[in-house]
C-alpha cells in the first residue's frame, strides 16, 4: 500500500502555524500580551521555531523521497 508522505503534511501544518504566529508576534502583540508572557514575545519565537521545524521536514522529504526505491514501501 502506498500512503502519502506524512512529512509533507507536518511541514505544511507547522509552516502555516509558524507564519501565522510570526505575523501575530510582529504585528499584533500588545503590552498586556508581553507582560503575561514575562516580557518574551512568545508568539514570535514559537513561530520561528515552527517555521524551522517545517523547513527541516520539508528538506527531509525532498532529500529522501518516500518511494525512491521501487518494489518496497
Amino acid at each position: 500500500m502506498r500512503l502519502f508522505d506524512l512529512r509533507v503534511i507536518i511541514a505544511f501544518l507547522f509552516g502555516l502555524y509558524g507564519v501565522v504566529l510570526v505575523v501575530v508576534g510582529l504585528g499584533f502583540t500588545s503590552e498586556d500580551d508581553l507582560r503575561k508572557a514575562e516580557g518574551v514575545n512568545i508568539n514570535l519565537w514559537a513561530g520561528i521555531a515552527m517555521v524551522v521545524l517545517a523547513a527541516v521536514f520539508a528538506a527531509w522529504a525532498t532529500l529522501r523521497p518516500q518511494f525512491a526505491k521501487t518494489g518496497k514501501g
Binding site: 502555524y17 504566529l21 501575530v24 499584533f28 500580551d33 503575561k36
Partner: peptide, 11 residues
C-alpha cells in the same frame, strides 16, 4: 491562562 497570550494559546 496565566502565561500564554492569544496565538500561542490557540496552539
Amino acid at each position: 491562562r496565566d502565561l500564554l497570550p492569544n496565538g500561542i494559546l490557540g496552539i
